[in-house]
Simulated assay, not measured.
Amino acid sequence: MEIRRDDYGFFGPDSPSWKVWAAPTALIGFQRAVVLEHFDPFLAAAVADSAGIYDDPRGRLDRTLAYFLTVAVADGRTAVGVADALMRVHAHAKGIEPITGARYSANHPDSQLWIHITGWHSVLKCYERYGPGPLSPAEESRFWAEARIAAELQTCKPADVPASRDEVRQYFSEVRGRLCTSEHADRAMHYLLYTPRDRGVQLWAGSRLLAPAAIATLPRWMRQMGRFDQPAAVDAAVTPIARAWIRALSALDRRPMLAVARRIAPATADVLEAHLTSGAPTNAHTVTPAEARERLIAHA
């Protein structure tokens, strides 16, 4: 699998995005993010109507994480290609949201913004708590600038993406009144945290290993709203265990990390392995999404 033919993509080897998205903590962060998505009633309705996480939970989740990782580390042409493919899939996810009776679309800018922010914030939060620790102020500023660049591939406005941790908090404060749970949302969130055994032993076990660590990073109001809160004693106990597990997977020999990823998310593991083993691209520089799209059109 070749993901870096032309260039270093949008961010490059020294970027915090490469560091955070390719870390094993991204597995915990991703579970956190896909659970939070369901606080948006329109996304919860889209998930319920498509039934993708119930028919093929492993494949659906794996492809989504592979998308985020590809955008972060692949060359620009590859990243734009997978983003366009995802937008085409989302274009079919339309219907009526049962709580409000309003129409929903998975490609609606507000829903796309919620997915984007919860995804980037979740992987950073788990990287800080269970991985190497907080980014430097300069790296964190750059991380959110890179999140805005990645948003150019979606329908939301890049300028709406927070540019700092304070702006992230402000965003959550502003949207809190629009968030809710429902029968659909409750079912999906608990399914993602504790996937039934009949969906495969690996996914069953993997979800249960990651869930306590993912929940421990969430504010109490989210945990209570989603009805998946856990005692403070569990939070305290899971933190050193998760940190030790991440240290073991972060060793110089990346084979353990790849082996774990392949068991839980094989498509993501393919992207990760390609990232870790790729040599220098033809042009050893970064590109903008606009430049990448021009290159994609030229090769069509």
Rank of each mutant, 00 (worst) to 15 (best):
85 A>Q: 14
288 T>P: 01
31 Q>F: 01
269 A>E: 11
200 G>R: 15
235 D>P: 01
130 Y>S: 08
296 L>S: 06
44 A>Q: 05
261 A>K: 11
219 P>V: 06
10 F>H: 03
294 E>Y: 07
119 G>C: 11
192 L>E: 10
52 G>V: 09
102 A>N: 15
65 L>H: 11
214 A>L: 06
266 P>A: 09
234 V>Q: 03
94 K>E: 10
226 G>F: 06
1 M>S: 15
64 T>Q: 11
77 R>H: 00
19 K>C: 04
86 L>Q: 11
99 I>T: 13
198 D>I: 09
239 T>H: 00
165 R>P: 06
241 I>P: 00
87 M>Y: 00
51 A>C: 07
108 H>I: 03
33 A>T: 09
10 F>V: 09
248 A>D: 03
12 G>L: 08
134 P>D: 03
132 P>T: 10
51 A>T: 04
160 D>I: 01
290 A>T: 12
248 A>C: 12
247 R>I: 08
123 V>F: 10
269 A>G: 08
288 T>D: 03
73 V>G: 05
219 P>A: 09
188 A>D: 00
124 L>Y: 08
111 S>N: 13
143 F>E: 02
235 D>Q: 00
97 E>T: 10
23 A>K: 04
276 L>P: 02
198 D>E: 13
174 E>W: 03
191 Y>L: 15
218 L>S: 05
261 A>C: 11
273 E>W: 11
181 T>H: 07
187 R>D: 13
23 A>G: 04
150 A>F: 00
164 S>F: 04
212 P>K: 05
277 T>A: 09
50 S>I: 03
174 E>G: 02
70 T>A: 04
112 Q>E: 14
286 T>K: 00
93 A>N: 08
63 R>K: 15
209 L>P: 09
298 A>V: 14
247 R>T: 13
231 P>M: 10
103 R>C: 11
156 C>E: 12
47 V>K: 07
300 A>E: 14
40 D>E: 01
17 S>R: 02
155 T>L: 05
74 A>P: 12
40 D>G: 04
236 A>V: 07
198 D>F: 14
258 L>C: 06
237 A>D: 04
38 H>C: 07
185 A>I: 02
127 Y>R: 09
216 A>L: 07
196 P>K: 06
219 P>N: 06
128 E>C: 07
256 P>G: 10
255 R>I: 14
45 A>E: 00
274 A>D: 11
131 G>D: 11
141 S>G: 09
81 G>A: 12
192 L>R: 11
165 R>F: 14
289 P>E: 02
212 P>S: 06
125 K>Y: 03
204 W>N: 14
22 A>S: 15
194 Y>C: 12
238 V>M: 06
33 A>Y: 00
157 K>N: 14
201 V>K: 12
31 Q>G: 04
28 I>D: 01
54 Y>K: 15
82 V>Y: 01
254 R>W: 10
73 V>F: 05
299 H>S: 15
103 R>L: 12
270 D>S: 14
35 V>P: 01
218 L>D: 00
141 S>W: 03
262 R>C: 00
262 R>Q: 10
